[in-house]
Design a protein around this nucleic acid. Structure first.
Lengths: 362, 362
DNA sequence: CTGAAAGCGCTAACAT
DNA sequence: ATGTTAGCGCTTTCAG
């Protein structure tokens, strides 16, 4: 026990326990527990007496002790890249709502998109004996971090990204189709030299066939490259720019726009934060959108509807991604043993003002 | 025990325990626990042997059992209005970073700004024996929800809002000064008929002296009304519009702008989401900002820097609000018994393009 | 340095 | 319907 005051809770007050309530109500511990925990059979009069005593003493159940004996914590964990990122905030909210409706609590961890941090977060959540886990995996390539979860026999649902060789429930968006649509829109407007920008980490320049850390981005790149290829654009891979977080979105955009040899006339942003960086940089450089540069992005962020011009985006059902993931998880927790499923949610094009033919400004 | 497979954990696998490791390593449970938990004294050779056995068996500590005996969960709880709201997302991130650095985990709950939901969330967190709580209270008026936390002897830190008659550590922003500055800016530009809009619930129209549910908003209203009063504007309270969530920001804005008798020429938005609604409505109604309507807001949201015009805002150190709250909480958890403190963090004016003299458009 | 044993607060057989 | 008792997995005296 701790040394503070002998109560062992380190908080300066001794917690009221079932035993205390039982004594006060003049019944056995088991009976008190049954009345309090609302299980088993208790006569009405005893129940009332116990509950009155509990009220009187200010009894608060100890969920941990309960979990210890039942093995269920009534808690699920969620691990996201960064809760400050609107995508994750919305997905988390979606999951949280579904969890709350099912009477489950939520433990949140940020991975910072770093596998090591993620591993620690998962280990903590497992140690807390969560009943299941929702994770947007930091790496779609290496399933290593997730193995312990499976080994522990805990239900796991992935969202936003799948993981190679890992057969678990997964909820993703139709990123390939979305990227294709967005790219085709630019192609149709007459663009040929279109850059794709993502902040995802990647060793060196992107080359066809490279594995990309997150399948969401990988799928977008696929759709993008596919559209360019179909349009007969040579060397599509050279238009894919990853690592924008490390290099800085603004610096990269600067480079793309100022290099005349590149001749970039349009940009596909893999998320709205990147688009914001591109937008600002274009403004700074005196490039007008869409006259001098066309811009499209994923995610219908607030600002894309009020900027000048407004930005054409591919909207994702973010809230629903989180909610559906939580629903799948709860099913598993309840004991559903069906083979893993992958849910692919549709994206929706929101056409606005940021696309024009190349050279419209001249 | 549960009926599934007799392991009592409901997850289809029996967890490896200290006892298992001890047996495998040929030592007592106590020794194994000491080696694993890194406390007490263990000889190096034994420690290695135990750790090897643990590794071998795939031992994962049960944090709950640990909490049961030590009384410390190494976890803090945070209760916010809505994690999807960028303000709370950023504050949560700030708190999360500080917590993580101190080796503490975080349990998140949304209150939806509803006292009942908040009460449930708090009760859950207490049941999980969090070491302390961070809360943005749904009601600054009624301390009822927070009493159980104090009664349980658990450290509590409030952020964004204070609570009447509750002497606990609190981290807030200098909202009164901020509102005053923002309002003065409009006054100086020549405005006299300025509306203040907040989404906070309020019974009926606002009248001087009314208690407002959140001190953050109350302080802003104070600053706003104070500035108008000093400027000799008659009946300042009539310019305060609360309940915008219930009534809808767009509908309210419509009413304000279309009523010629009101003659509103400028608006102070209590947050950036409201400002976005005002902005959109103004656009819809064909009112140009700032020529026909001046607009200022709290919080330096993304879009306020890229809209046309850009919006003049009062920026809050949101990340720091959460971080500082977490720091205070950790101090308390560590046993600091000093009297409660209130930290007031400064806001910063970001002047942009959304303010002009009234009638500049004519 | 190591082991034996008690206990954290609760639930779940098993009796009665 | 109620009571008795034995754990859940860990930490912590207390002995040795």
């Amino acid at each position: 026990m701790s040394a503070d005051n002998g109560n062992g809770n380190g908080h300066g007050r001794r917690e009221v326990t079932v035993t205390d309530v039982a004594r006060a109500a003049g019944v056995s511990k088991a009976t008190a527990a049954r009345a309090l925990g609302d299980y088993g059979a208790v006569s009405e009069s005893v129940r009332d007496r116990v509950q009155a005593a509990a009220e009187e003493l200010g009894y608060r159940p100890n969920a941990l002790a309960r979990t210890m004996s039942t093995g269920r914590s009534n808690t699920i964990g969620i691990v996201v890249g960064d809760i400050e990122n609107p995508f994750f905030a919305q997905a988390t909210r979606g999951a949280s709502d579904v969890a709350a409706a099912a009477g489950l609590d939520l433990i949140l961890s940020n991975s910072d998109e770093d596998p090591e941090t993620e591993a620690k977060a998962l280990s903590v959540q497992l140690a807390k004996r969560v009943d299941g886990l929702l994770v947007a995996p930091a790496s779609s390539v290496d399933p290593g971090n997730l193995r312990p979860v499976l080994d522990a026999g805990r239900p796991l649902v992935l969202f936003d990204r799948a993981v190679a060789d890992l057969e678990v429930d997964t909820v993703i968006a139709a990123n390939r189709t979305g990227a294709r649509t967005l790219t085709q829109l630019l192609l149709d407007a007459g663009h040929r030299r279109i850059a794709f920008i993502s902040t995802i980490d990647h060793p060196g320049d992107y080359r066809l066939g490279d594995q990309i850390l997150a399948t969401s981005v990988a799928d977008r790149v696929d759709g993008f490259v596919g559209a360019l290829t179909d349009a007969g654009v040579p060397d599509p891979a050279s238009f894919v720019h990853l690592n924008a977080r490390r290099d800085g979105v603004e610096a990269l955009t600067r480079r793309l726009l100022q290099d005349a040899d590149l001749g970039i006339t349009a940009i596909v942003s893999s998320d709205s934060l990147i688009a914001l960086g591109v937008y600002r940089t274009a403004l700074t450089l005196g490039r007008r959108i869409p006259d001098d540069l066309s811009l499209v992005a994923f995610d219908d962020a607030d600002w894309t509807g009020v900027s000048t011009p407004t930005i054409t985006v591919m909207s994702q059902p973010i809230h629903e991604i989180g909610a559906e993931a939580a629903r799948l998880l709860i099913r598993r927790i309840r004991g559903d043993g069906a083979p893993p499923v992958t849910r692919v949610l549709e994206q929706r094009l929101v056409p606005r003002e940021s696309v024009a033919p190349p050279g419209a400004g001249r």
